[in-house]
Design a protein around this nucleic acid. Structure first.
Length: 290
DNA sequence: AGCTCTTCCTGAAAGC
DNA sequence: TGCTTTCAGGAAGAGC
């Protein structure tokens, strides 16, 4: 599943392949994940790519402002979210086309930018500068850029469970299920703990754990489980470093206790019951026997 | 307002 | 064997 490290890896790959290229033609398959597909194809045909960047888990392909009508809202971006099975690759046109490939942008260097997405949880749209600004405004700061004090401020005042907040892109952007679990393990925090019950020390540890985990994952070009591949179509290697994610029943790498799986915030959450102690359950104090 | 649950989609794997 | 059911999850929107 593409989260911050995977999207960052794809973006870096595309930065090497796309800037300066002209889009010669656009071919569409299924389009139910695209906002206004006909308009998108029309506007992109003949346009030139200026740059590629990441906003949270979104990929923004900036188009050169050449033919765009001069208005205050000039500056057009092709915005792509990979959902959970989306792939964006820049490959030779002669490369075989994988199943579920729904968008083809043929480029002026003989390559083709392709969007493949088995489950079509991804999104694609054309967006003006104002839309990009609105996205940045309603999204939380990037998980790699937020400082420790700001992090403690955003989380420490919330009563929701920490795992739910880590997944909520409005609080901090870029973290998904894998890196939430891996970071919580590293910081020794149970996923169901209320954020406002964490100590300052724990919030600081979690902030550090997130940075460390994300940077290590980027170095290994992300985690490939079932579907994720980078811009060249190659898998990442960070899944080999996972400490809890998808390791139910296996020994904790720190204490050998068996890793458990529970549901938190509607998602599978993997944790070590010894390293990450559960929150106090506080039932109606029936335990007060005598 | 803040928080949690449901929904979308497909294919792999488990269950019967 | 072959069918049905369950599960995976990002983010929007509904519901409490």
């Amino acid at each position: 599943m593409p989260e911050l490290p995977e999207v960052e890896t794809v973006v870096r790959g595309l930065q090497a392949a796309l800037p300066g290229r002209q889009i010669l033609s656009v071919r569409l398959g299924k389009t139910d994940f695209i906002d206004e597909p006909v308009l998108l194809a029309e506007r992109l045909t003949g346009s030139r790519i200026a740059g590629v960047s990441r906003i949270g888990k979104f990929i923004a392909v900036e188009l050169a402002s050449g033919a765009v009508v001069a208005s205050t809202d000039a500056g057009l971006h092709l915005v792509i979210h990979l959902g959970m099975t989306g792939r964006l690759t820049a490959v030779r046109t002669s490369e075989p086309v994988p199943p579920h490939t729904h968008v083809f942008f043929s480029l002026d260097d003989g390559n083709e930018l392709r969007y493949t997405d088995i489950r079509r949880f991804g999104r694609m749209r054309l967006a003006p500068n104002s839309w990009m600004d609105a996205l940045r405004a309603r999204w939380g700061q990037d998980a790699l850029e937020i400082g420790a004090p700001e992090f403690a401020l955003r989380f420490g005042s919330r009563s929701a469970r920490i795992k739910a907040l880590l997944l909520d892109q409005h609080t901090v952007s870029g973290i998904g299920n894998i890196y939430a679990d891996e970071s919580l393990w590293r910081a020794r925090i149970h996923p169901a703990r209320r954020a406002d019950r964490l100590t300052t020390k724990q919030l600081r540890a979690l902030h550090r754990a997130i940075q460390t985990t994300l940077l290590a994952a980027i170095r290994l070009k992300g985690s490939s489980f079932s579907d994720y591949l980078d811009a060249e179509g190659k898998p990442g290697m960070f899944q080999r470093m996972h400490r809890v994610y998808q390791r139910e029943g296996l020994a904790c790498r720190r204490c050998r206790q068996r890793i458990r799986r529970i549901q938190v915030a509607g998602r599978s959450s993997f944790f070590c019951p010894r390293c990450q102690p559960a929150p106090r359950t506080r039932k109606k104090s029936r335990a007060r026997k005598k």
